[in-house]
Write a protein that binds this DNA or RNA. Structure first.
Length: 895
RNA sequence: GGGCGGAUAGCUCAGUUGGGAGAGCACCGGCCUUACAAGCCGGGGGUCACAGGUUCAAGCCCUGUUCCGCCUACCA
């Protein structure tokens, strides 16, 4: 090739590292991510699931944001005002933990520095390190509108939080009360029910004797009541023993008293329906302050509540001699003491689920304390209805039931946290008269007694309280902003199913309550990314695939495409590096295909690449027609959140149709001996390449952008080009059939060559016996292509069986018979064996169809078109069979 | 305990009104054919977990069984 062309050529391999930063900068600089608010265009909006500000991009983020970016880029190209709001979550406990660890290295605790200084430290940390995950999202190519980036503790969002809190309080939907809650003894805070994770583990069940009080003993009572417990140390807080009211065994004891061992406190025997007579001994110790059920029982029976654990889960003075011990230490000691006293009946192993803090994995301690709650039922009901009546669609729909289940059995939401980093609860208590003031702005005096001695609630709100407002708080609420009117409700929320309850359900509730409309029209819940063995990735298992590392190694486009290609609905993604490698090869394939095309397209080429359908050859018609279908399929798949279908369809089209067949067929024309043909060929090729790059852009933004600018006449970026639309005039059914048959013939000849071990360089003779008009026209119209693709030197067409060459290898279909005569190379017996095998296959199939056609019921009951289809199939098979037999006879004669 | 999902080629999976068992990777054989060896060409490989049922016809619908995941729950 000319030196000039050589220079213009793309490098042989795609070097993604420079390309990625180059184009990302360009997109940002040109403001291409900034949402437009054009009244004449439809809207597409999304809010990002805000990653924790402490976060580092993990593979789950990579999947989540890749999918969002695919939709954003697709919709933006397709003419929508597209807004993708980015931001981060202040992540109360998680962030506080990070800064506390930092302090610990300096030998300090947060108490040492004090609340105000501590919060200053956190903000400082946020300013220095909080932007890390945002940078990583950029690395992934996310086309978020960074001019609208938000943080859940921003001034505006904090105002929204206060507004919501105050309104809910005024509506009686927020209340404060003494209840049993899940307490994390390490984080020193209350947790909501869903913040507790339950892991099944091997535990023990101890049977303890509680002696009947002397004054209540008579001949009808036993000496002891035996209770079974998994947590013997909590007996120190027992205030009753409960039995089922129907339980005959204990009927006489109800109302009498027992002596609580070790502490010698008198406790009553009560009857409560909650007790299952079948389990253990049918008698349950009741610890109202440290067990959810016991708490309910105690309320029903007006029992006292004894808090035996402090905030560290150490025993309080209520525990007498055990005061100061850790709960597990106390368990050991209690068991020892019981054994010594002869009150331990027996122990058994017993499987149980212990609750752990979802932040630090410490075993939580149910504990009685004063907390703030959101009354959930009035909020949950509308959220449930909105999904039931389809105002919000959950995809895949399998999750609807889970959502309903949860929404129906939901308990009040504990929203107060005893930590410092977060939205401080806007409630003040008058130190004089005890009046509680809940207000949007800091009050200066008590409205009741006028005292200025007001103290603000020290607790902060659950992090999820502010994230629940995210779809409208990020758009400016409580102000009535243009953005809010334009983009709310958002179009889609893409998130992982594991925060369906934490986040999605709560956004539904808050959105409906404060915006009178759902926060999003669709919720797409994607699966978890697991390792190649299907195990959850975790640092401790050492099976983590770090997206940043693999982006460095394989390029962002390959990683994104892999994630999309495996994002099948309702199934977890099993990821391995091998798979990413496979799609890196695809990136390279795209690169090289473009390289080939550009070799043949002058830089100054007319970039409108117009062509007339009348001038096209059948390969060109075929690829245009296939492109058309691919466009339709890609759109349908993306509209239905079938990212995997879209990705795999594009892969198939680009590699196995465009590259494997079209480019091979077009090479001759492209290279330009015939100027008229080469012009058309270049135009069509360029057209297909351009459109395919556009289709691929949402998946692989970087390589497509880079290649785009190498194409002739491209000024604007591909990311703001128009997403392809199918064109009816580019659908060519006949050409598709023709090329399919051509492919069959070429493959048939290649097959013969491979089986005979003919060297790829050797050109052979091929004899064609056509049996249909279609095959005749393929043979006549595609001589060049057949000879190039199948390496045929000489093509001969015969009209009848009699002219068949002797001793030839054959390829037989109902449309055409092809013979490759190669005296000396063709081993007759081997050829006969092949035919025999083929005959067997056809016979098997034939007998299956014959069976159907012999079945009267089939003929009577099956739809006529199906019967017809079977008949046609039979005819075809018979024709093929006939040819196989004849050819065999001939070979036998020859041999 | 309740609920949901899965079981299809060696591996990972697709298979959307029941009517031709498919893809990618891996494997085997042959090729450095001037876009690409990160490639090209060809090939082998499956009682669709098991047992029944409905149907002219079942990977697909129904029932049961086994195994594997996940979610949820107040048997202490």
């Amino acid at each position: 090739m000319p030196a000039e062309a050589e220079e213009r050529l793309l490098p042989k391999a795609y070097d993604f590292s420079q390309v990625e930063t180059k184009w990302y900068r360009k997109w940002v600089k040109d403001g291409l991510f900034t949402a437009t608010m054009d009244k004449d265009k439809p809207c597409f909006s999304m809010v990002i699931p805000p990653p924790n500000v402490t976060g580092v991009l993990h593979i789950g983020h990579a999947l989540n944001n890749t999918l969002q970016d695919i939709l954003a880029r697709y919709k933006r190209m397709d003419g929508f005002n597209t807004l993708w709001v980015p931001g981060t979550d202040h992540a109360g406990i998680a962030t506080q933990n990070v800064v506390e660890r930092q302090l610990a290295q300096e030998g300090l605790t947060r108490q040492d520095v004090g609340r105000e200084k501590f919060i200053e430290r956190v903000w400082k940390w946020k300013a220095e390190s909080g932007g890390r995950i945002i940078e990583q999202l950029k690395r992934l190519g996310c086309s978020c509108d960074w001019s609208r980036e938000r943080f859940t503790m921003d001034e505006g969002l904090s105002r929204a939080v206060r507004e919501v809190f105050v309104r809910l309080y005024e509506e009686g939907l927020i209340y404060q009360g003494n209840y049993i809650i899940n307490w994390c003894p390490r984080c020193h805070t209350a947790l909501a029910d869903i913040e507790v994770e339950h892991d099944l583990s091997e535990g023990r069940l101890w049977y303890i004797r509680y002696p009947v009080a002397d004054e209540d003993r008579d001949e009808s009572t036993p000496e002891y009541v035996i209770v079974a417990t998994t947590r013997p140390e909590t007996m120190l807080g027992d205030t009753a023993v409960a039995v089922n009211p129907e339980d005959e065994r204990y009927r006489a004891l109800v109302g009498k008293h027992l002596v609580l061992p070790l502490l010698n406190r008198k406790i009553p025997v009560i009857a409560d329906r909650h007790v299952d007579p079948e389990f253990g001994t049918g008698a349950v110790k009741v610890t109202p302050a440290h067990d959810f059920n016991d708490f309910e029982i105690a309320k029903r029976h007006d029992l006292p509540f004894i808090n035996i654990f402090d905030k560290n889960a150490r025993l309080t003075e209520e525990a007498g001699p055990y005061q100061g011990m850790d709960r597990f230490e106390a368990r050991k000691k209690v068991l020892e003491d019981l054994a010594t006293a002869g009150l331990l009946e027996k122990e058994e192993s017993h499987e149980l689920a212990v609750g752990e803090c979802y932040r630090c994995k410490t075993i939580v301690e149910p504990r009685l304390s004063k907390q703030w709650f959101v009354k959930i039922e009035p909020l949950a009901r509308p959220a449930l209805e909105a999904v039931r009546d389809g105002r919000t669609s959950i995809v895949p729909p399998g999750w609807i039931r889970t959502y309903e289940e949860w929404m129906t059995n939901i308990r009040d939401w504990c929203i107060s946290r005893q930590i410092w980093w977060g939205h401080r609860i806007p409630a003040w208590t008058c130190q004089k008269c005890g009046h509680v003031i809940v207000a949007r702005t800091t009050p200066d005096k008590c409205p009741k007694c006028g005292s200025a001695e007001l103290e603000q609630e020290s607790d902060v709100l659950d992090t999820w309280f502010s994230s629940a407002l995210w779809p409208f708080s990020t758009l400016g609420w409580p102000d009535d902003t243009e953005e809010l009117r334009f983009f709310y409700p958002t179009s889609v929320l893409i998130t992982s199913f594991d925060i369906l309850f934490f986040w999605v359900a709560r956004m539904m509730m808050m959105g409906l309550h404060f915006m009178q409309d759902v926060p999003f029209r669709y919720v797409y819940l994607h699966a978890l990314v697991r390792d190649a063995q299907g195990k959850k990735m975790s640092k401790s298992k050492g099976n983590v695939i770090d997206p940043l590392t693999i982006m460095d190694e394989y390029g962002t486009d390959a990683v994104r495409f892999t994630l999309a290609a495996f994002a099948a609905q309702g199934r977890d993604i099993k990821l391995s590096e091998e798979r990413i490698q496979g799609y890196r090869h695809f990136v390279n394939k795209i690169w090289n295909a473009a390289r080939l095309v550009l070799m043949h397209c002058p830089e100054d080429m007319d970039s409108s690449h117009d062509f007339n359908a009348d001038d096209l050859n059948s390969a060109e018609k075929w690829i245009l027609s296939r492109l058309n279908s691919t466009i339709e399929e890609t759109r349908t798949a993306l509209d239905g959140f079938n990212f995997d279908v879209a990705a795999k369809g594009l892969y198939q089209f680009f590699w196995h149709e465009f590259c494997d067949w079209y480019l091979e067929l077009a090479k001759q024309d492209l290279s330009g001996q015939n100027p008229e043909r080469s012009g058309i060929s270049r135009a069509v090729t360029l057209h297909v390449l351009e459109n395919t790059l556009k289709l691929l852009h949402p998946f692989m933004p970087f390589v497509t952008e880079e290649l785009w600018h190498h194409l002739p006449g491209k000024q604007k970026c591909i990311m703001v080009s128009d997403f392809p639309e199918a064109r009816p005039e580019h659908s060519f059914q006949e050409a598709e059939q023709e090329i399919e048959l051509l492919k069959t013939m070429v493959t048939g000849i290649r097959n013969i060559r491979a089986e005979l071990g003919i060297h790829p360089g050797t050109r052979v003779k091929a004899v064609f016996l056509p049996h249909s008009d279609l095959s005749l026209s393929v043979i006549k119209g595609h001589q060049d292509e057949i000879s190039t693709l199948a390496r045929v030197a000489e093509m001969e067409q015969i009209a009848s069986e009699d002219e068949k060459p002797r001793g030839a290898a054959s390829f037989i279909t109902e449309d055409v018979e092809i013979f490759v005569p190669l005296a000396g190379i063709v081993d007759i017996s081997q050829e006969l064996e092949k035919l025999q095998k083929e005959k067997g296959k056809v016979e098997k199939e034939l007998s299956k169809i014959q069976g159907k056609l012999n079945n009267e019921n089939f003929l009577k009951k099956a739809p006529p078109e199906i019967v017809e289809k079977e008949r046609a199939k039979k005819d075809k098979l018979l024709a093929r069979m006939d040819k196989i037999i004849k050819h065999r006879e001939m070979l036998e004669q020859a041999g």
